[in-house]
């Protein structure tokens, strides 16, 4: 990849109160830095990976997201944006049943994955998570060696033999664009790496089990702009083989690094709901909904 570094704007680039209200984030120059960002998929519709129908999620009595219906296409990057507390992470964690781990969490409506109901009683969440990997907001490598970080997933999936594991570890680290930095210290602690390296290690760990989908929950929020850029480049490469869904607070990131954008906001009951979904270029330059327009132009949020 020879991508020219786009200008990285600070994450909270909204205009202050005294700034002219009509300020609009001009994403076109950013989009041009990546020639393949043009909505090539518009020609042939992508296969549907996830389909949500009237999906709601509760924590106890609190409904975090409300009646969301949307489709997620294969081998493209879908970003979920919206103000804080609108259930973006909750929605993301519904795709691999990560919310099951939280006491009192429950869902209604349906989430299908390649047409199969993810919340059907016979579905094993462990198998779901093996196919739908996750990268978290804060880099969370295991406090073990770099090798062990990557090898753990394949090992619990039943891969045996040092040679097989060695191969998976190397190819995963290579695909996560961190091999050259860590190949001489695979026995070093994963937690001793820098923040950006840790996050790429976590991405390597996620792809080591050959998932179909990678969920990313604000993967760059703890990283500096250079590290952020590297992760975005990496996402761009990974989307050749994986379906990626990313939650981000950073609108520039959504604009420059995704094909499809989902915008959530919350109603009076504080439950997040879907306002608009569409090709990223459209959501940012020609939003169909007034709320979306206000948000992407920095008028609220």
């Amino acid at each position: 990849m020879t991508i020219q570094a786009p200008e990285i704007a600070p994450s909270d680039a909204r205009p202050g109160p005294d700034v002219q209200r009509e300020v609009r984030i001009d994403i076109r120059p950013m989009m041009q830095t990546k020639p393949d960002v043009q909505p090539t998929h518009a020609a042939e519709p992508a296969e549907v990976v996830f389909k949500l129908t009237y999906f709601s999620a509760w924590y106890g009595t609190f409904r975090a997201v409300k009646e969301i219906s949307l489709d997620i296409g294969a081998r493209r990057i879908t970003s979920i944006i919206g103000p804080s507390g609108t259930g973006k992470s909750t929605l993301l964690r519904a795709f691999n049943r990560m919310n099951d781990l939280i006491e009192g969490a429950r869902v209604s409506g349906t989430v299908t994955y390649h047409g199969v109901d993810l919340y059907a009683p016979e579905v094993d969440p462990v198998e779901v998570r093996r196919r739908i990997g996750m990268v978290f907001q804060k880099p969370n490598p295991f406090p073990k060696t770099i090798y062990e970080n990557v090898a753990f997933g394949p090992r619990v999936a039943g891969v045996r033999g040092k040679k097989n594991l060695d191969e998976i570890v190397e190819s995963s680290l290579r695909r996560a664009a961190i091999w050259d930095e860590v190949k001489d210290k695979l026995d070093g602690l994963g937690t001793a790496l820098s923040g950006g390296q840790q996050q790429r290690l976590c991405i390597a760990r996620a792809i080591a089990v050959s998932p179909d989908v990678i969920l990313m929950d604000e993967p760059c929020s703890a990283l500096d702009p250079i590290a952020t850029l590297r992760i975005e480049e990496l996402m761009w490469e990974l989307k050749q083989n994986y379906t990626i869904i990313i939650v981000t607070h950073n609108m520039q990131q959504a604009a420059r690094a995704s094909d499809e954008t989902v915008f959530l906001t919350m109603g009076d009951d504080r439950a997040g709901y879907l306002v608009e979904q569409g090709p990223t270029a459209q959501v940012f330059t020609n939003p169909q909904n007034r709320l979306t327009e206000d948000y992407v132009s920095g008028r609220f949020g």
């Binding site: 990560m98 781990l101 998570r129 093996r130 990997g133 978290f136 969370n140 753990f152 997933g153 996620a206």
Partner: peptide, 14 residues
């Protein structure tokens, strides 16, 4: 930390 558990579950561990 919860993040360690989530990381484990995230790669499909039981």
């Amino acid at each position: 930390p919860r993040s360690i558990r989530e990381a484990g579950f995230g790669v499909g561990a039981t």
